[in-house]
């Protein structure tokens, strides 16, 4: 796929699974990867999970990250600093609505900047 990839970060694995279902039902041609919960499946976020999700999603058009509360943003920022990929950005947008709009835009072949802007104006 050559569209901007999307990573969903939440304290709960179930939250991102549900959002994944909502998005992919309408937008099948965008890569959406999940980083929900901690490494042992508890409530929380994990920088390693985020890094792995970025790796799975990544290609030349870049990746946009969406997060929920508290440590999710901190770990997202850490992941952006730690990943070897360059075109990885964080969207300041509500997790569900933002990621949904981003996926639709990405599916139309928009750039990372365009997708981010659309998500952030939700």
């Amino acid at each position: 796929m050559t569209n901007v990839g999307i990573v969903l970060i939440s304290h709960s694995a179930k939250v991102v699974e549900g959002i994944y279902d909502i998005i992919t039902q309408m937008v099948p041609n965008v890569k959406v990867e999940l980083a929900g919960g901690t490494d042992d499946g508890e409530i929380g976020t994990s920088v390693e999970k985020i890094l792995q999700a970025i790796d799975r999603t990544h290609h030349e058009k870049g990746v946009l990250l969406f997060y929920d509360i508290g440590s999710a943003l901190m770990n997202a920022e850490l992941a952006v600093e730690m990943t070897e990929h360059e075109n990885v950005a964080i969207a300041e947008a509500p997790l569900l609505e933002g990621a949904f709009v981003a996926a639709v835009e990405s599916g139309m072949g928009k750039t990372l900047e365009e997708v981010k802007e659309a998500a952030e104006s939700v």
Binding site: D39, I43, G44, S46, V47, G70, S71, M74, N75, L78
Partner: peptide
Amino acid sequence: LLSKVGGASGPLFGT
């Protein structure tokens, strides 16, 4: 700490 803590204190103490 970054990989094992889980909560906000992980990225904070880790950093």
